[in-house]
Design a protein around this nucleic acid. Structure first.
Lengths: 212, 212
DNA sequence: GTCTATACCTAGATAGAC
DNA sequence: GTCTATCTAGGTATAGAC
């Protein structure tokens, strides 16, 4: 469930389990790009040969598929949790942003890979389709929030949604676990997105924590 | 100076000029990724053979270098224009955001390529270094704006700058010329970033245009 | 300025021994 | 589960004729 470094290694003796292989692959895919990373590179990072790597996985694409699935699943779990809430659309939109940030932070490497997919294969096209699904869902929530008067209506819903989640997604470029708790950064993103950068005079949000 | 489609073709008779070659290459690099695009693909898009392509350019990396240079140059020109203004840091930050959006929109394909570089070669590392320079410059402006009380000080300058320009940069994922004038989208980004999504009661900004 | 032909290399993936 | 050896496809780049 986690992409942590130490590699749990379940039972096989000296062997690497699938999670360890995936973690090493995804790390390289993100650092150099999927296409620029060879199966030799992945094998080398694990201290094994290419052939041994192929004993663990069916091919390069399988690694990509597993990674983007973990990212997509996380995002849709967040969306499902938000959908089942009994709040206003505006609050649910805030919640979706917050939970999206948490997913990004906790599955950072998987989401990073997802957001860089081009559509060059069936696997990549499927990933893009699910991303579009998520975008549509977010846009719809923005539309509802505008209709109930919770957020400004002078911006196209699709535009607002894309800028909003563009800000969220930009986290993959610089967020690292050392830079603070996911919950803290999530709160910062929500605050900035909804209240803006400008100095606020009337503070209706009392938890003014200095970030990090 | 522009990356327009029709390809000026200066003098050589049936020949392609460098700008046309670059435009075709960059379009493919963005659509499939730099590494996933072969020189054959570029040649095919131009209706010539690989060898002929190599008559025009020294190699694949030269195409990448030219593209990212156009992007970087645009961003630093914007930064230089802002630096020479006699405004408050807050207004200059707004101006940097606005002009950055304009550069993104006008050099969309070049900037897209720039923002996807990994650092796999000298060319890419140089591009990354210049991006970091721009980030530092933006962070500094945020710090100044906070010091003069123009924007909220309860967020780390580096965090605010990265989220702010993360929103700006996310434009490359969805902005297309058909979606509206660059100036319009730039105004929307500035409004959203500085005033937030939340409904505003007191409108101190009178140009409330419905976007697109 | 464009072509055909090709050198040279690295990629993904497999065979089969241990 | 891991290895060495190898197949095959496709990549960048060049030589040299027209």
């Amino acid at each position: 469930m986690d992409s942590a470094r130490p590699a749990p290694r379940r039972r096989g003796r000296p062997g690497h389990d699938l999670d360890a292989v995936l973690a090493a692959a995804v790390r390289l895919f993100n650092a150099r790009g999927y296409d620029a990373t060879s199966m030799f590179d992945v094998a080398e990072a694990l201290g094994i040969t290419k052939s041994t790597l192929y004993h663990h996985v069916s091919g390069k694409e399988q690694l990509l598929a597993m990674a983007v699935d973990r990212a997509v699943d996380g995002l849709f779990e967040a969306a499902a949790q938000v959908r089942d809430q009994q709040n206003t659309a505006t609050v649910r939109l805030q919640e979706l942003v917050r939970r999206s940030v948490l997913v990004l932070a906790e599955r950072l490497e998987f989401v990073t890979l997802l957001l860089r997919v081009h559509g060059n294969s069936e696997v990549e096209q499927h990933a893009l389709a699910r991303r579009r699904e998520f975008d549509a869902l977010a846009t719809d929530l923005v539309k509802q929030a505008q209709a109930e008067g919770g957020i400004r209506a002078d911006v196209e819903p699709a535009t607002a949604a894309r800028l909003l989640f563009g800000m969220v997604n930009s986290l993959i470029e610089w967020y690292r676990p050392e830079r603070g708790h996911p919950e803290t950064i999530a709160a910062t993103v929500v605050r900035l997105a909804f209240d803006g950068l400008r100095t606020i005079d009337t503070t209706d949000d009392q938890d003014e924590q200095q970030e990090q």
